[in-house]
Amino acid sequence: MLDALTLDQMRVLIAVTETGSFSGGAERLGRAQSAVSYAIRNLESQLDVTLFDRSGYRPVLTPEGRTLLADARAILLKVDTLRARARGLGEGVELRLDIALDPQFPLNVASRALKELQDAYPLVSVRVLPAPLGEAIRLLQQHHCTLAVSGIDIPDPRIEREAIAFVPRAAVVSACHSLANRAASGETITAAELADYVQIVTEDPSTLTHGREYDVLSTGTWRVGDNSTKHSLICAGIGWGNLPLWLIERDLLEGRLVRIPAAEFGYEGESVARMWLMRRTDKHLGPAAKTLREALLRQADTLGA
Rank of each mutant, 00 (worst) to 15 (best):
T291E: 11
L303Q: 00
L303T: 10
L253C: 12
L303G: 03
G266M: 11
V272D: 07
E249S: 10
Q299A: 09
Q299P: 06
R256F: 12
A273W: 07
Y267H: 14
I260V: 15
F265K: 04
E268Q: 13
H284P: 08
I260C: 05
R298F: 03
L253G: 08
W246G: 10
T281E: 08
H284A: 15
P287M: 01
L277H: 04
P287N: 03
F265L: 13
A289Q: 08
L257E: 03
L252D: 08
G255D: 01
R250H: 13
Q299S: 07
R279E: 11
W246C: 07
H284V: 14
D301H: 14
E270H: 08
A262G: 11
L292M: 00
R256Q: 14
L277F: 03
T302K: 11
V272S: 08
A262I: 03
E268Y: 03
H284N: 12
H284L: 13
R250Y: 11
L252I: 07
D251Q: 15
A288S: 13
W246L: 05
L247Q: 15
R293K: 06
T281G: 10
G286W: 02
Y267S: 14
L277Y: 04
W246T: 09
H284I: 12
L285G: 01
R280W: 06
P261H: 06
R280C: 03
E254A: 11
T302Y: 12
R274S: 09
A288L: 05
A295S: 04
R293F: 10
T291V: 11
H284C: 09
R279L: 06
K290I: 12
A288P: 07
L292W: 00
T302M: 09
E254I: 08
L245S: 10
R250L: 13
D282G: 01
A295K: 03
L252K: 07
A295T: 01
R298S: 14
G266F: 02
R256D: 12
D282C: 00
K283W: 12
L277Q: 02
T281R: 07
M278H: 04
T281L: 02
L296R: 02
V258S: 13
T302S: 13
M278C: 07
V258P: 08
E254P: 09
R293T: 13
P287W: 03
L297Y: 02
A295I: 04
V272Y: 12
Y267D: 15
A262P: 10
A295L: 04
I260S: 09
R280H: 03
